[in-house]
Write a protein that binds this DNA or RNA. Sequence first.
DNA 1: CACAGCTCCTGGCAGC
DNA 2: TGCTGCCAGGAGCTGT
Length: 282
Amino acid sequence: MPELPEVEVIAQGLREYALGETIEQVEIRWAGAIDRPDPATFADQLVGRTVTDVGRRGKFLVLAVPPAHLLIHLRMSGRLLYCEAADEAARQHPHVRALLRFVSGRWLVFRDMRKFGRLYLVDNPQAVTGRLGVEPLSEAFTVEVLARVLQRRRQIKPLLLDQRMIAGLGNIYADESLWEAGIHPARPASTLSEEQAAALCDAVRRVLRRAIAHKGTTLRDYRSLRDEEGAYQLALSVYDREGQPCARCGATIERIVVGGRGTRYCPTCQRLDNAQPPSQPG
DNA sequence: CACAGCTCCTGGCAGC
DNA sequence: TGCTGCCAGGAGCTGT
């Protein structure tokens, strides 16, 4: 599942390859992939536009195609591939939902097995991203800002997954951040100590930066713009590791359901009460 | 405001 | 072997 680090790696790839490309043709193979405007208008309006900037907001890719913006959300299984004119196989894959052909002859291919991903063409990106919370890798993500989020009477993990609070965390990096900070995922947010809030703030930033450095996590579907796998799956502490020993204390990683989501954690390092974990995270 | 439940969708898997 | 049916999961939505 592409989360902030995976989307950031794709954005880096788009900056390297797609910047300056002009769209010559738009092909939509599954109309449901286009959120807005209607698919015909979407295709019409994109032709002739040049990609002048590539950004990311939360899990959204934001491509400036003046005077509009093309936003892409990959959701569960979406993939974005930049391929050569000769690469017909990439375009013929049955899960391809939409394609952009550039004047250069190269293609941007949107592939999505589960059909949850969406493309948006809007004048103002805020129309789509306006309700997103703070960017966790920006300077705006301070302990004070996190503390305000933590005042809510909710369990900490569903709060971390709420894009209106913090933009970009998904199931993998929420679990990883909570392990890193030594906090139980079902812990009521408002009961965290100041030290724990500070540890969580650090943990979120550290985990996301490390994952970007590893080019993201490939458990199943995720690939970079050039179809490369990430490497962070090799460095995961709890996610996809249930039944295996905790790297910090050796206890067995468990799976529970929190807020309806499968959740992996270490029952020794991440206690629901305030007891000290066996060692401080680092 | 919190939160449960539903929807979208399909490959993968368990169970028979 | 082959079938059925359940499940995960991001996010938006409704209802309580």
